[in-house]
Amino acid sequence: MTTPRADRGRNPDRSPLNWLLLLPIAIPLIPPLFNADEPRLFGIPMFYWLQLAFIILGVTTTTLVYRATRRNR
């Protein structure tokens, strides 16, 4: 599940996966990526469905980071 940490007692939040968190911070803030009407999904313009899809990106990355750094007891 979690990788063993050599430096227990030091920063327990440290993980290379933390860099992944930059993706869901940066991508939703770049309008050219999603500011378009086509292609539509179920009649919904891309502007709306793609931004809702970014939620999945956020959930995936935060879940990975949580699993990599959670403390077992």
Partner: peptide, 24 residues
């Protein structure tokens, strides 16, 4: 219109941004 949808990116970026800050 579209401007009001800012609430979605706002609440997407906030969690990865504060995750490691709030545990501190």
């Amino acid at each position: 219109g579209a401007m009001g949808f800012y609430a979605v990116p706002y609440t997407v970026v906030v969690y990865p941004m504060v995750m490691l800050v709030l545990v501190r």
